[in-house]
């Protein structure tokens, strides 16, 4: 093969590889890696991972009848939901995972916007937001330990206006998000 052609092909391959590596290594700022959560041998397990393309695809369904919801979806980059029913086999491991996620968020610039704990064994809800200035939210993480029965983890990544969260919560039935006063968070800024 012509040496010039060989060199050009090698350079092109290197450029492509470095571009691919850099794009793979830079998740969006609001993205949180919950790690690999596997189902136990019994109990309910739900895992949903929606990418940007799929969310835009979903917005096409609703653009006429639910334009607000469609607009929110168009600005989302990623949605991950995990619902895991707790059993003796996985309770300690899953709850430990949730506590680890919470600690990591607290130490990495996320704002805790909701913290609710119903005694003695009720819901333990903490919601975190990654703010970009005062006007936008780059990421939301909802963590719920529902007594000893169930754990819910939700990560929503995108360019989200605080006032759109109510639409998101209502449309996708995310109860803990419905009660949050995002106007207060917006004005306090972080």
């Amino acid at each position: 093969m012509n040496p010039i052609l060989r060199t050009s092909a090698a350079v092109a391959a290197l450029i492509f590889a470095s571009a691919a590596a850099s794009s793979a290594a830079d998740p969006a700022p609001g993205y949180v890696d919950f790690g690999r959560i596997v189902p136990s041998t019994e109990g309910k397990f739900v895992e949903v991972n929606l990418s940007e393309g799929l969310l835009k695809f979903g917005s096409m369904f609703a653009s006429k009848q639910e334009p607000q919801a469609a607009d929110v979806l168009r600005h989302l980059k990623h949605v991950r939901v995990n619902v895991v029913e707790l059993s003796d086999a996985n309770r300690s491991q899953i709850i430990e995972r949730v506590k680890t996620v919470r600690q990591e968020l607290e130490t990495s610039g996320w704002t805790q916007i909701v913290s609710v704990r119903e005694q003695p064994k009720g819901d333990d809800v903490q919601i975190f937001a990654k703010m970009r200035g005062e006007e936008a939210i780059e990421g939301l993480v909802v963590t719920v330990i529902d007594g000893n029965h169930e754990v819910v983890l939700v990560n929503i990544v995108g360019d989200i206006k605080p006032e759109q969260i109510a639409t998101l919560a209502e449309r996708f039935n995310i109860d803990p998000l419905k009660k949050v006063d995002f106007a207060g968070i917006k004005h306090s800024g972080t």
Partner: peptide, 11 residues
């Protein structure tokens, strides 16, 4: 969208 009457099916 037409079959679902424009409502998002996901909750």
């Amino acid at each position: 969208a037409r079959e679902m009457d424009g409502r998002l099916p996901v909750k």
